[in-house]
Design a binder for these strands. Sequence first.
DNA 1: TAGATTGTTAATCGATTAACAATC
DNA 2: TAGATTGTTAATCGATTAACAATC
Lengths: 208, 208
Amino acid sequence: MDNVEISQAVIKRLPRYYRYLGELADEGVMRISSRELSELMHVTASQIRQDLNHFGGFGQQGYGYNVRNLYDEIGKILGLDKSHKLVVIGAGHLGQALSNYVNFERRGFHILGIFDKNPDLVGMKIRDVTVSPMDQLESFIRGNDIDIAVLTIPKTSAVDVAKILVDCNIRAIWNFAHVDLAVPDSVIVENVHLSESLMTLSYNLSRR
Amino acid sequence: MDNVEISQAVIKRLPRYYRYLGELADEGVMRISSRELSELMHVTASQIRQDLNHFGGFGQQGYGYNVRNLYDEIGKILGLDKSHKLVVIGAGHLGQALSNYVNFERRGFHILGIFDKNPDLVGMKIRDVTVSPMDQLESFIRGNDIDIAVLTIPKTSAVDVAKILVDCNIRAIWNFAHVDLAVPDSVIVENVHLSESLMTLSYNLSRR
DNA sequence: TAGATTGTTAATCGATTAACAATC
DNA sequence: TAGATTGTTAATCGATTAACAATC
C-alpha cells in the first residue's frame, strides 16, 4: 500500500469530497453515484472513481457509494480518525483565530499549548489554553509529545523557530509565515501563503 | 495577448518567483540566471524560463535576468502596480488578522471598510477603519467602488452575503468560508480553505 | 570573438477523461 | 434477469523537462 505513491493532486481533492459527503450525510442522503456527485461538485465522474480507487473499492456496481461509509473511509485516509497534538506559535490575531476555531478540535486536532514572545500576550487565555512565553516551547513539545506546530509568526522568527522545532523532533509544521522553511524530509511542511493567494486573485482580476 | 489562456499552475508559481526576486533585490543582487534561481528555489531552470516566456522575454542571452526589472515585471503581471479597494466582511479574529496585515496595504490592497453583524464588534477600530454594521454593506460597496470582498464569516452566512455581493457587482471574492460559492463566471473567487490544508497535512503525517 | 544563457521547439512524463467489461 | 454503475484499462490532453539554435 505504501509503495504506491499517490499524487498530491489527488490528496488535495480528498478534503473536498469529504466536505460534500459530510453535508450529504447530514441531509440524510444514504447513497450516491459518481455521476450524481460529479454534478454536485462540478468535476467528472471519471475523476471521482479514479481518485477513490487509489485507496480501494468503496462502491458497488449498480448501486453507487454508501454516503456515510465513504465519508468515514475518506476520514480514515486523511488520518482524521486519529488524534493530533498541536501547539500554536504566535498568539497574534491569526494565532488566536486558529486557536479559537472549534472545528479543528472536533476533527481531533487538539491545541495543547500557545506560545508568544510578547510579554503582553503571555498569560492571556484562549479557550482552555493560557499563552506561554517562548522559552518554554522546547520543553513543552518534548514533554507533551506534540505532533504539529502551527507557525503564525513573522518570517524572520519563523526560520529560527523552525530550527528549534526540528530539534524537538516535531513531525509536521503548518506554516503561515511567508518563507520556505528548510527542514529535513522527515518533517512535513504544509504552507499557507495568504499573500500568494491574494496575488493569484489579483492576477485573475487584472485579466478581465 | 489575452487570447492565450495561461494555466493556473503557472499563475500560482508567479507569487513565489516574485517573493524570491524581491528578497534578492533587497540583498542587492543585480542579475540572476535561470539556473541560479532554479537552485535557490528548488525548481528546474527549464520551468522558470517556460513560465516567464508566457509573458514575454524578460531575459537576455548570455546574461540572464535583471533582478529588479524581472521583479517589477512580475509585479505588473500580478496586477500589483494597480491599487485595489477591499472590504472585510467578518470582524472576528481572522478578519482582524487580515485587516491588520500591513503588507497587503503596501502592495496596493486598501481596506476601506470592515463589517460585522455582531453589535459588540461594531464601532471597534482596526487601524484606521471602524467596524460597521452589516446593513451598511451594500451601499458602502456601491458608493466606494469596491473591487474585492474578503469573506471571513461562517459558511451559512457566506452563501447569503455572496448573493448580496454579486448584486453589488463585486469583482472578486477572497473566500475563507468552508463552502463553494455559486457566483457568475464574471466574479472571481479565490478560496482559502484552511481546514482542507490541515487535512492535507494530516494525510501526509499518517503516511510516514 | 568565445562563452554564457536565453527563448523555444521537441520529447517525456503524468494527470485527466473516455470507454467498457465486470458485476451487483 | 435487466439495468445501473462501478473498477479499470486505454486514449487523450496538458504540463514539465530536455535539448539546442539563436543571440547577447
